[in-house]
């Protein structure tokens, strides 16, 4: 979707707060908390509003508070405005919708979040580990991650 017009932060704020499940964070003009159900709708709105640059998807593990926070940094290719979407998901059921249908960049970014935190993205075409190898057990960047000691796998014989 090409849109030569990039909406200003104020226009975005006006339209975003109208979406059910999206709330602006006080004290900032470009950060929003998003409910899981409203994520794709918010992203599609932003894409249409000229914010075509999905800069980053990452997660922060708030172990004490018991949830993961997914952070989406969505910018545009004209000025320096970055819209941040924050999505809190419970640690036991760590799932979110995939943005692969909206931004192609979401593919690898979500794979990295899955690899490091174990957060599954529904609708992702190819969700597998990207930085760690395929048989790796555990989610490294979680705060309660205990690394398994290296297991001696024995000498591989070709017979």
């Amino acid at each position: 979707m090409t849109n030569n017009e990039v909406k200003t932060k104020a226009q975005v704020a006006a339209a975003m707060t109208k979406i059910a499940g999206v709330a602006a964070i006080e004290g900032t003009d470009c950060e929003y908390t998003v409910e899981a159900s409203a994520l794709i709708q918010a992203a599609e709105y932003l894409l249409g509003a000229g914010y075509e640059f999905l800069a980053d998807i990452t997660a922060v593990d708030y172990l004490a508070a018991g949830h993961f926070r997914l952070l989406y940094q969505i910018a545009n290719y004209h000025n320096g405005d970055i819209i941040t979407l924050k999505l809190d998901i419970p640690r036991e059921a760590a799932e979110a919708d995939s943005l692969c249908g909206v931004y192609a960049a979401a593919n690898w970014l979500e794979r990295e979040v899955y690899d490091m935190f174990g957060i599954k993205f529904a609708g992702h075409p190819d969700l597998r580990r990207i930085l760690m190898w395929d048989g790796y057990e555990g989610w490294p960047l979680r705060k309660d991650f205990v690394q398994q000691p290296n297991k001696y796998q024995g000498r591989r014989r070709l017979d």
Binding site: T2, E52, F53, L54, A55, Y77, Y103, A104, A105
Partner: peptide, 10 residues
Amino acid sequence: AERAKSYALT
């Protein structure tokens, strides 16, 4: 340009 923008090339 379209694919570049969608893939967040920079």
